[in-house]
């Protein structure tokens, strides 16, 4: 499944959405969801084996650099590519 997270840290529902993930799933952080990359917070909720990525434009627009995260930063084009492979969504 592809889990789309758009709200930032401390949003209770986003935490719970991420906990639905299982190995092989992808969590895509968009908008303020990119804040979950800070201090690797996302990994506290995403089980091992879950792919994590964030929209690059949303991350950079919030004042961060590519080097501020070890997770993959993706373009909108790559987001569609993910959905071409895994069509079930939680949004």
């Amino acid at each position: 499944m592809v889990i789309i997270v758009k709200y930032g840290l401390y949003h209770e529902i986003e935490k719970r959405k991420m906990e639905f993930a299982e190995p092989g799933d992808t969590i895509v952080l968009i908008q303020n969801g990119v804040f979950w990359l800070l201090n690797n917070e996302v990994r506290k909720f995403a089980p091992e084996g879950v792919n994590v990525c964030a929209l690059k434009d949303d991350f950079l627009a919030r004042g961060y650099k590519e080097s501020d995260t070890s997770e993959k930063l993706i373009s909108y084009d790559e987001f569609i590519e993910i959905l071409e492979k895994d069509r079930k969504t939680i949004g």
Binding site: M1, I13, R16, K17, E19, F20, E22, R87, K88, T89, I90, G91
Partner: peptide, 17 residues
């Protein structure tokens, strides 16, 4: 229970919050 929520969620094609 929360554990059952996960089963229901994962059984769906689309989950719309």
């Amino acid at each position: 229970s929360e554990a059952d929520v996960k089963k229901i969620v994962r059984d769906c094609d689309f989950v719309i919050f």
